[in-house]
Amino acid sequence: MTSIPLSVPTRRPLMPVLAALSLAHLLNDLVQSMIPAIYPLIKEAYQLDFVQIGFITLAFQVTSSLLQPILGYLTDRKPWPYAMVAGMGATLLGLVLLSYAGSYEMVLVAAGLVGLGSAVFHPEATRMARHAAAGRQGLAQGVFQVGGHAGYATGPLLAAAVVVPRGQASLVWFSIVVVIAMALMAWTASRYAAFRRSQVSDPGAHEDVARHGLPRGSVLFAMAILVVLLLSKNAYQAAFTSYYTFYLIERFGVSVQLSQVMLFLFLFVGAIGVIIGGMIGDRIGRDRVIWLSILGTLPFALMLPMADLFWTGVLSVVISLVLSSAFSSILIYAIDLVPHRVGLVGGLFYGLAFGLGGIAAAAIGALADRIGIIEVFRLCAWLPALGLLTFLLPKGARSR
């Protein structure tokens, strides 16, 4: 199945819009990543166990996952680009509340508000990237998502440099990041609104239509397979984003700062992998990228628990590069199945990415309290084996 471009006023991707979306994604996810980056600080300050740490992740990721499909469905019917600005207002409130939280319960509320901002941002931004792609869907999603990965990677580094030495209250300094993101989103929304008005006035403009010819049952089956593949990817990734620092500290006795630098490397390389995966998917097909990305992670994941500190760092970088290339292909594959529901699919899959990661983080935390964080990483290494399910995707929908 070939991805069908929307009618746009140029045959080239609208790179200024994609670049602005990518930067907004960077700033949005940078704030999100500050939460898991300061887990060691929060764990000590509130005397938490691993289950309670997992529930913090669950708070902001499930809030986001539950709302994103609903908001995506509503904006499919009536796009509202400026909603992203309002969503960042919730993120700003959550960040300020987290800075001065006096209890664990307040931390959970603050995390939920940050998740709310993300829920508003992703569906509408996904639609904007789709419209600005001019048929280069892999490139467009790669550019958009690289900002998110870069932001998520930068957060732990900033936390190590600023928050860990100065304390939780210094999080409020990053409010300026949210204000900048709000201004950038307002500019992007105005450009997109003008673009949509030009489409409405253009009699030749049309929306994407599905051309794979699959019956509804096959589409639903393919969606279910994609969800399971996303689960395998995000569950394994959750082990790193929430517990990699604890693993490094317990296994090798490294400092909190060094563990956060290594987490930064893991996340930063993921930003490179996501754009590479998107571009390759435009050439060789989405299903091949999904297969290579998820199942290709397996041998490196199995070697990681046996490696020393140096090779742990090397293997984690390789794992991040390979694993991160899957999401853009999974998302585009799903959108190509129902291209008239971009907001719903974008909200659903971004929501599932957050929600499944949050549920996995809580489950992994509970397991770590029982068997130890080192043994958890040994067990989680088998999750990429679920990449074998890629072979069950309908042949008629395997896209380029």
Rank of each mutant, 00 (worst) to 15 (best):
I4F: 08
L6F: 11
V8I: 07
T10H: 14
M15Q: 12
L18Q: 07
L18E: 07
V31R: 02
S33N: 10
I35T: 06
I38C: 12
I38S: 07
P40H: 02
L41C: 08
L41R: 09
K43V: 12
Y46S: 03
Q47H: 12
F50E: 05
F50M: 11
G54L: 02
G54W: 07
T57L: 03
L66N: 06
L66F: 13
Q68K: 06
Q68G: 08
I70E: 08
L71I: 15
L74E: 04
L74T: 00
L74G: 03
K78H: 14
P81Y: 01
Y82F: 13
M88P: 01
A90V: 08
V96R: 11
L98Y: 00
S99K: 08
E105S: 11
A110V: 09
L116W: 01
V120Y: 09
H122R: 02
P123C: 09
T126P: 00
G135K: 04
G142N: 10
G142F: 11
G142C: 09
G142W: 06
G147L: 01
G151E: 10
A161S: 12
V164T: 10
R166F: 07
G167F: 14
A169I: 06
V172I: 15
F174P: 04
I176P: 00
M182H: 05
A183Q: 00
W187K: 10
S190F: 10
A193T: 14
D202V: 00
G204H: 13
E207I: 05
E207F: 13
V209F: 10
R211C: 00
H212C: 01
G213A: 13
R216P: 04
S218Y: 04
F221R: 12
L226A: 14
L226K: 02
S232Y: 01
Y236E: 11
Y236A: 04
Y236K: 02
A238I: 05
T241I: 14
F246A: 11
I249Q: 14
V254Q: 04
V256R: 10
F264H: 07
F264M: 09
L265E: 08
L267A: 14
L267R: 03
V269I: 15
A271T: 06
G273S: 08
M279F: 07
M279G: 10
M279I: 15
D282K: 00
R286I: 07
D287W: 15
R288H: 14
V289Y: 08
S293V: 06
L295F: 14
G296P: 05
G296Q: 09
T297M: 06
L298N: 01
A301T: 10
M306N: 12
D308H: 11
G313A: 04
V318F: 00
V318Q: 03
I319V: 15
L323H: 07
A326K: 04
A334R: 02
L337S: 04
V338N: 11
H340R: 13
R341P: 02
G346A: 11
G347T: 03
Y350F: 15
G355V: 08
G358R: 04
I359Y: 02
I359W: 06
C380W: 04
L383Y: 04
P384L: 07
P384A: 05
P384G: 04
L386K: 05
L388Q: 03
L389E: 06
G396W: 11
R400K: 14
